[in-house]
């Protein structure tokens, strides 16, 4: 029972990342009809927004410490952040420790700008081209973006810790009356799940309860008719691209303390996220979220030692196996609509 609760929590946590990325992918596909293989790169850039802010806040000047030496035997040069000079060491370090939450605000304008630049600068030229062309150009863009990040930040992962207040684990076991220490879960992963739920709810509320969202939904259903009504649907779809980029970016920012960001992390999520979109149903936002959590949980359960003892290697194929079964029984995915991606 303990193991099941733990793996459910793990699944919800993994599913949060899948769902957020798949949500953005579906928004772009549903509005612009573009299959965006650069979406994983947007997730990665979001994580590097956290890295960048951490570095900006840690900008330092050198102070020579004559009591210690460096690796060449010279007096040690110690980096002292400017924030220490301004606010004192304790407050200054406190601000640096909060880099990741602060990066939420920092990343939104950056991701929105990147989203608009991507859509206006490249993707819009491929609206009427076949999906294969869109995939090729966005995949190429993803590689360019990750090589740019590698050039500036290197290939190694960069530690980007959560605020000290959220380091450590929550003891679920003590909460529900089982042995203390048997069901513990990291605070930051619980925060990640909660954050994902808020973002998902925000996107749905935006589409459901605002005039802008209503027009976008109408455009998704019948772009031509909305255009005939004199509404500039293209402009709204560009904004939706920016929103999708922000959703992926925010997912990346909050993911940075879970696994140290590296230039390749977007690709690690991209394929799984596409599977999530297909399983959920192309163009279906609720489907993407549902499939994200479903596949996250299944992946976690497949990694249990009890399961691996019976089905060795199942952890490596479970998502694809389930995808095949669902697509065989429900060719449009869990919540796919008729006519989407169909001739």
């Amino acid at each position: 029972m303990d193991a099941i609760i733990l793996q459910t929590l793990n699944g919800l946590d993994k599913g949060s990342a899948y769902a957020l990325i798949a949500l953005g992918l579906t928004l772009i596909f549903g509005t612009l009809g573009v299959v965006n293989f650069a979406h994983g790169a947007l997730f990665m850039i979001g994580a590097f927004c956290a890295v960048t802010l951490q570095r900006l806040l840690s900008l330092s000047h050198e102070v020579v410490d004559d009591t210690r030496t460096d690796f060449l035997g010279n007096p040690l040069k110690v980096d002292v952040p400017y924030l220490y000079d301004i606010f004192g060491a304790d407050v200054g370090q406190g601000i640096i420790n909060w880099s990741v939450p602060l990066a939420i605000l920092f990343s939104i304008p950056i991701m929105a700008f990147i989203g608009v630049a991507m859509e206006r600068g490249l993707v819009k030229h491929f609206y009427k081209r076949p999906h294969a062309d869109q995939i090729l150009v966005t995949f190429g863009l993803a590689i360019v973006l990750q090589e740019i990040i590698k050039y500036f930040y290197g290939a190694n992962p960069i530690p980007t810790p959560a605020p000290e207040a959220f380091v450590g684990s929550f003891d679920f076991g003590a909460l529900i009356g089982v042995d203390a220490g048997t069901i513990i879960y990291p605070y930051w992963r619980l925060i990640y799940f909660s954050f994902a739920m808020i973002v998902i709810a925000g996107v749905f509320a935006f589409l459901q309860f605002t005039t802008f969202g209503m027009v976008v939904r109408a455009g998704m259903a019948d772009r031509e008719t909305v255009g005939l009504l004199g509404i500039n649907i293209d402009k709204r779809f560009t904004i939706m691209f920016a929103i999708a980029a922000c959703v992926a970016g925010l997912a990346g920012v909050m993911y940075a303390p879970i696994n140290s960001p590296n230039y390749h992390m977007g690709m690690d999520f991209l394929v799984l996220s596409f599977v999530v979109v297909v399983v959920g149903g192309m163009g279906s936002l609720p489907g993407a979220v549902l499939a994200g959590f479903l596949l996250g949980i299944l992946e976690s359960f497949a990694s249990m030692t009890q399961v691996l003892d019976i089905f060795p290697g199942i952890n490596q194929i479970i998502i694809y196996l389930v995808a095949i079964i669902i697509l065989l029984t429900r060719p449009r995915g869990l919540m796919g609509r008729k006519g989407v991606m169909e001739e």
Partner: peptide, 14 residues
């Protein structure tokens, strides 16, 4: 290719 090892670490607790 694993990036998140949480589902492999959780069983250690059991």
């Amino acid at each position: 290719t694993q990036t998140d090892f949480s589902s492999y670490i959780a069983p250690v607790l059991q």
